[in-house]
């Protein structure tokens, strides 16, 4: 049972990581909570459903197209709603409220267009998992694990070593100073939404394949995604992925002894604990009083 719970935890963690990493990129660069991030994944999932099941477009076209649409979606939200608000120097609380408004609007729009019933995407057949030392794992789940691993490595390298990655960290750290070193902060913020939302698009695809599609799917995962980002450290991109795995594993092993109804409670307790004891998260840097 241990091995199965471990696998379950890693799969859950992978799905949280897909949400938390994109969210983290947007948060660190823009310094406000973009709650509608989950809706980006939802919109992506429904787009995939519409193009694949509805229009019959093959997956080698719809998969990349969905990711592109998700990136565009996030970019437009920033351009049309957040940017004008930022220009008026509104506080991050107002931006958070705006993001909640967007989230409610999008989720309801999806429900209006597609109905509240759960949609199933039958692209890959579901079957008995592959047995591995007494535990089962399906091909889709293996694919998710591998993809998230690649994402992790990719984000780490991008953030630490690439020019754009360093610039994004610079903007996240000190936007005023960034301006004076010739960095176009607004353009970097655009990039953060494009990249973060593209990852949410990928999340939408994988979650649709592994579970199914519902209007509230992305928003439900935002809670865990947000918790994962806090646990891993909101200032650290790879940290948000590590935090996601920590959450996934703690949830699944915690349920070993506790009734399964406590699963969500575990997420909240973990969130609270970190906020109280180590708010910078596992990888977050506590700059202390020096700066």
């Amino acid at each position: 049972m241990f091995l199965q719970l471990l696998i379950n935890g890693l799969i859950a963690g992978s799905i949280y990581a897909l949400i938390s990493s994109g969210f983290s990129i947007i948060y660190t660069t823009n310094k406000f909570v973009h709650f509608a991030h989950g809706s980006t994944a939802t919109v992506a999932a429904y787009f995939l459903y519409w193009t694949f099941s509805g229009l019959g477009i093959p997956i080698y076209i719809t998969f990349p197209l969905t990711i592109f649409v998700a990136a565009l979606f996030g970019f437009l939200i920033h351009l049309v709603i957040y940017l004008p608000l930022k220009k008026r120097k509104t506080s991050s609380v107002i931006l958070l409220i705006a993001s909640i408004g967007i989230m409610i609007f999008c989720d309801n729009l999806m429900q209006l267009l597609f109905g509240a019933n759960v949609k199933i995407l039958s692209i890959f057949p579901h079957g008995r998992g592959i047995e591995f030392l007494g535990a089962y794992i399906t091909p889709i789940q293996i694919a998710i694990l591998i993809i998230v691993l690649i994402l992790f490595v990719g984000l780490w390298t991008f953030s630490k070593y690439s020019r754009l990655g360093k610039i994004m960290r610079a903007v996240a750290d000190n936007p005023e100073l960034a301006k004076t070193t010739g960095i176009n902060s607004v353009r970097i913020q655009h990039w953060s939404f494009v990249i973060g939302s593209a990852i949410a698009g990928l999340a939408g695809i994988l979650i649709a394949l592994e579970h199914n599609i519902e209007p509230s799917m992305g928003t439900h995962l935002m809670i865990q995604g947000f918790t994962a980002a806090v646990i891993g450290g909101v200032t650290s991109l790879p940290g948000s992925i590590v935090g996601a795995y920590v959450l996934g594993l703690v949830e699944n092993f915690g349920i070993w002894w506790l009734p399964s109804g406590y699963k969500s409670a575990i997420a909240f307790v973990l969130l609270l604990a970190f906020l109280l004891v180590r708010p910078q998260g596992i990888f977050g840097i506590n700059k202390g009083a020096r700066e």
Binding site: M1, Q4, N8, E214, I255, S260, K263
Partner: peptide, 20 residues
């Protein structure tokens, strides 16, 4: 005995316990 919410869409944990 174990439970889940009407809106839950992932029962792997509970089913793992049943299997065990």
């Amino acid at each position: 005995t174990d439970t889940f919410l009407q809106t839950d869409r992932d029962l792997k944990t509970q089913l793992t316990k049943v299997k065990n």
